[in-house]
Design a protein around this nucleic acid. Structure first.
Lengths: 253, 253
DNA sequence: CGTGCTGCCTCACCCCGCGTGAGGGTCAAG
DNA sequence: CTTGACCCTCACGCGGGGTGAGGCAGCACG
């Protein structure tokens, strides 16, 4: 038996028949064959693909993105690595949440009934104050941090807009390279990485190629960075990370 | 200023105005007041409730369930504790997933092309084979495990159905008590716990009150158990856990 | 040969948790 | 007295399917 029908596939991989219909309809998983009666017939290859879909879906990636990922057609390993990064990022978020709950519990225990101000601090969007505090904790003593603080202090609204625009264009370059299927070691990708480095060096703090690597690593280990890159394009965090390392390799020669 | 408008609340807790409208519409969070012009006005208490909603929502509970939970009328601490348990459980699930991905990566690295069978084994529904194997690893040497294996080996399909029916009725008792708002230390809840113990003692292995506590702990630490209880009713895992401990306390006197 | 039964097909509506307008009132500052 | 920024309601859209309805396909049993 070289092919399976919907019901068999459904049992095998733990999805519903309706799901298979849906995936067929949106073109995510079109069975390679049909019987004369119109029955969907899935091959081994189809099953392998479905398996990938199922795993990616566990990460709650939109089906559209899953399709792009799978159609980018790199080995399974690339997908798996990306998945790992994504899940780790979610893990990080939840860990943060636990910490927030603990803080709330502690406060509650000590009978401070938690004012509005504190609420915001505890659960707010978790990016602003909390991040600032943590950033300072992590890098407060470093020269880079001080330099960055000094420079940005006098930035006007217009400056910030320019900064954002520059960053957007760098990101766009990364996305373009990624979509074009260029490897992270390609000219396009490493050029984008170099722009990235220069942008930061211009706007925030001196940044050599070695330090740039550290930043790259953070992009895939800190959930907040990962999330913001993944929000732009699936797999982008990992790609940017790889491209920066590749660029630093080039400049090390 | 004792009340806030939608926009202020939105900024404060990091939700959108539309979300607040929605919550009002479905009765999840109806602002305590309205201005003469019809503006929604949120009080301190409303904010506290919203904060709970926000946290529960991060756990991806359906809004309907969140409403039930909040209307059950327990203190903030109770909610926070439950939330902690739930988040931890989700963390466990994700950790499992990372482990699964790692296994797949390893296999991929060692150039085993991974057949469908193997994939299924790796990612399958994660409850059947995998659980069996793990269970044996954890308890394979214990008397309880051997006893259970010996007894259940000869169970027929009809036996299994009876077992399931018994378990369902015990669970129904827990749910009824929970819904009625009975505390976990109540007669109803501890009686259900006692039935639970006897059911297992009858069907699987001898189970005294001390060992029963161990089982209870597992219900809130092992994500698979947590998930299956939470799937029946939100908050049930914690409730069953508490009821079992309360019951064991009674019998220890 | 019919009669069930299970499994497959398509078509089409429903659900949740909002996002995103459209069209219009409110309120404080200049 | 206008101009924005904010607020209101109403209503449609979307993703990822669930859940029928109505109708063939294929096999077993009598």
């Amino acid at each position: 038996m070289a092919t399976w029908t919907v019901g068999q596939v459904a049992d095998l991989l733990g999805v519903t028949v309706r799901t298979l219909h849906h995936y067929d309809q949106i073109g995510l998983l079109v069975p390679s064959e049909r019987s004369t009666a119109g029955y969907r017939l899935y091959t081994d290859a189809d099953l392998a693909r479905l398996q990938q879909v199922v795993v990616y879906r566990r990460l709650e990636l939109p089906l559209e993105q899953i399709r792009e990922l799978l159609d980018r057609g790199e080995g399974t390993t690339g997908h798996l690595r990306r998945q790992r990064v994504a899940v780790m990022s979610r893990l990080g978020e939840l860990t943060e949440l636990v910490a927030a709950i603990d803080r709330a519990l502690e406060r509650e225990m000590s009978d401070q009934p938690a004012t509005t101000e504190e609420l915001k601090e505890l659960f707010g969007d978790g990016f602003k104050d909390e991040y600032q505090a943590e950033a300072q904790e992590r890098w407060g003593e470093t020269d880079a941090w001080k330099q960055s603080a000094a420079r940005t202090k006098r930035y006007t609204k217009a400056d910030w807009e320019a900064v954002k625009a520059e960053m957007d264009s760098v990101n766009a370059a990364f996305v373009a390279a990624l979509r074009a299927g260029e490897p992270a070691t390609s000219e396009a990708a490493t050029a984008a990485a170099e722009s990235h480095r220069q942008h930061i060096a211009d706007r925030f703090y001196d940044l050599d190629h070695e330090f740039h690597r550290g930043l790259a690593d953070m992009y895939i280990t800190d959930p907040r960075f990962t999330r913001s890159y993944e929000g732009i394009e699936a797999g982008l965090a990992q790609y940017v990370h790889d491209a920066i390392h590749a660029n630093s390799d080039r400049h090390a020669e």
